[in-house]
Write a protein that binds this DNA or RNA. Structure first.
Lengths: 154, 154
DNA sequence: CTTGACCTTACCATCATGGGAAGGACTATC
DNA sequence: GATAGTCCTTCCCATGATGGTAAGGTCAAG
């Protein structure tokens, strides 16, 4: 099977198949006399595995681990489950971040009348301090650098 | 104010301030005789605007539009609201994608006993076809390609 | 004058993916 | 056998926003 056919069969683009090979995620494919890459069913199955893992959001780095477990017939399913759980947790974290953004924006947008007038709480918020904070604006003073005796946080 | 102070005051790293300048998101800063960039309160305020917009997930491209509206005293708040709504919708879309991934993974992980045995529904799922597809594998024969009577594109 | 903190530019890396160019390989058709 | 068309090959570039590093100039204080 040529790379194009393997791509169609696996859902991974030819470009990415070559890339995965170059990074060592998949072993170097066999070649015909003229240099064309050749793929077997087994290799296509591995590509499908990769594709599916990507669809679930796994970074290639993690897919490397998943593939290793996949091939390892004496694996512990606990290791697989751990990887999955980490991925779930990562997704959860990102979802929460985005939900927070969305909610903030939603509040702002709800408060914006959205007509021809220029007054806009969205811009007002963006233009104000971080998180509608204190009037600390006065602190960004004129002089260049205070001695700054100690600075724990940042 | 030096770039380092502007960075601290705005929450945007010096690196990013230079980057934003290079891409034209912000105007070229003034310079001292020796070439140091100088920032006024107004410019720091703009940087804070950018920072806050980034925190809400706006891509720099959209921030350009937001900044333009911010500066335009005859803007229509409807335009701002539209940008915000687009951002909300984009966030919503990504959240849904990730939620779908997470749920799929959660189902798989729930079905995985996670012990020392190798049997694992997670790997089983990843290793199977895309949503348990056809056994089309037989089609990848030796011949290169069917006539494929017509294909407009490309 | 030395030290150290700061600034400058310029380049490289990320992460996964696509685009394109230049050229070889293969198949079908004339 | 020549030609056309589609495939393959490698190599380079771009993305988006950010960080890192290196080599060198500047500034303030000791």
């Amino acid at each position: 099977m040529n790379i194009g056919e393997a791509a169609k069969a696996s859902g991974v683009s030819a470009k990415m198949i070559r890339y995965y090979e170059s990074t060592g995620l998949i072993p170097t494919a066999g070649r015909t006399g003229s240099g064309y890459r050749v793929y077997s069913d087994t290799e296509v199955q591995m590509l499908r595995f990769i594709r599916r893992s990507r669809d679930l959001g796994f970074p290639v780095e993690k897919i490397e681990e998943l593939l290793a477990l996949w091939r390892d017939r004496s694996r512990h399913s606990a290791d697989v489950k751990r990887l999955a759980q980490e991925q779930i947790d990562g997704l959860e974290r990102k979802i929460n971040e985005m939900r927070a953004m969305k909610e903030t924006l939603q509040h702002l947008a709800d408060a914006c009348c959205g007509d021809q007038r220029p007054d806009c709480p969205i811009l007002a918020d963006l233009g104000s301090g971080p998180t509608t904070m204190n009037g600390d604006a006065g602190a960004r003073g004129r002089q260049r650098r205070q001695p700054e005796p100690h600075r724990a946080a940042e």
